[in-house]
Computed example of a mutant assay.
Amino acid sequence: MDKLPKIGIPVIIIIIILIIVIAKSAVTIDSGEAGVLYKTFKNGVVTDEPPMGEGFHIVAPWNKVFVYEVRQQELFEKMRVLSSNGLEILIEASAWYEPVYKDLGNLHQSLGENYLQRVIQPAIRSAARSVVGRYTPEQLYSSKRDAIQDEIFAETKVILEKQYVQLNEVLVRDVTLPNTIKEAIERKLRQEQESLEYEFRLVTASKEAEKVRIEAQGKADANRILSASLTDKILQDKGIDATVQLSQSPNSKVIVVGGGESGLPLILGNN
């Protein structure tokens, strides 16, 4: 076997070294991610330049690139907190968050890659304890869920704005009370509903009775006015009108004009 030329070995070594250097220097950043450059021999973390975007990058082999996900992410938390009267409440909530893209270098320098555990979880837990502590279990169970969701979001957002993290939304998925408290609240709500229904029936009955009374009073007033306005002459005229109409009916046979009392017509039928 022919021996390699003396110049061949150094070339092979150089090629191997180049391959290793390129491999260590090549950085690929996937979609939804960004890179923070750390310069070993110059000031460390780069904070005065935009993060490295998606795609292929070449960096010096002695430098490092820390890759962060910059898409919106979700944190799901189960928290045990105390209500205003000291009862333990279980809250299930989700927080939607993402790192502030332009401040990714500052985030890496101040908090590092585990910023979720260092700042986001403590922030949302602190806000939840603060907000829930202002309400009673009954308020949390019925009418204040949207309010505590908005307040937890507002308080958490204030904390995270100083930590290079953007909070997009907080969703309170469930509020669980102790069974005894939950049953007592449900029983009270049922009683209140039954009381409201009873009051509604009373009001409806009262209105119906008032309607009947007004109708009866109206009829009585109408009859009184009619009685006062009827004279013998009017009755006679109405009797004559009725006689004319009845005379045109096939069922009427004999009509004696002036045959009845008060001079009204007397009508004789078939029999």
Rank of each mutant, 00 (worst) to 15 (best):
K219G: 03
L246A: 09
D146I: 06
S227M: 10
D237K: 15
D2V: 12
S142P: 00
V59C: 07
E194I: 09
S229L: 11
L104P: 13
K64H: 09
L90P: 02
L202K: 13
D150E: 13
P178I: 06
W96V: 13
N168Y: 04
E208M: 11
P178W: 11
V165K: 01
V172Q: 01
A147D: 08
V45C: 02
L75I: 09
Q72K: 14
V81C: 00
L111K: 04
D221V: 14
F76N: 12
Q217F: 10
R190I: 15
L116H: 07
Y38W: 02
L160Q: 08
I124A: 05
L202A: 15
Q73M: 12
R80L: 08
M1L: 09
V256S: 10
N251P: 02
L177E: 08
V158F: 13
P50G: 05
L140D: 00
L235F: 03
E208T: 05
I152H: 00
R201C: 03
N271F: 15
E197I: 11
V212Q: 14
Y97F: 14
I120T: 02
P137I: 04
R145D: 01
Q73D: 11
V59I: 15
D103I: 03
N114P: 08
E69H: 10
N43G: 07
S227G: 14
P250K: 09
S247F: 05
K211D: 12
E69A: 10
S249H: 12
R224S: 15
Y135M: 12
R173A: 11
S110R: 03
V256T: 09
I214N: 04
N63F: 06
K182A: 14
S94M: 06
G86R: 07
K24R: 13
V45K: 01
P51F: 07
E197F: 02
T176C: 04
I19W: 06
Y135S: 07
L82P: 01
V36I: 02
G112F: 00
V132E: 03
K157R: 13
S206C: 09
S262G: 03
V45I: 13
T180A: 13
I9G: 00
A222Y: 10
Y68P: 01
T176V: 15
I148F: 06
R224Q: 14
R125Y: 04
L160P: 00
L140Q: 01
R145A: 04
Q109C: 00
F76G: 06
Y135C: 06
V165P: 14
H57Q: 10
E192W: 05
E151T: 04
K157C: 01
N251M: 12
L104M: 06
V131L: 00
Q72A: 15
R71V: 02
S110Q: 03
K6L: 14
K3T: 08
I159H: 08
F153E: 13
A228Q: 15
Q163R: 14
A220I: 15
Q117V: 02
V21R: 02
K182P: 05
H57A: 05
Q193H: 11
R129Y: 04
I22Q: 03
I267E: 10
V170H: 06
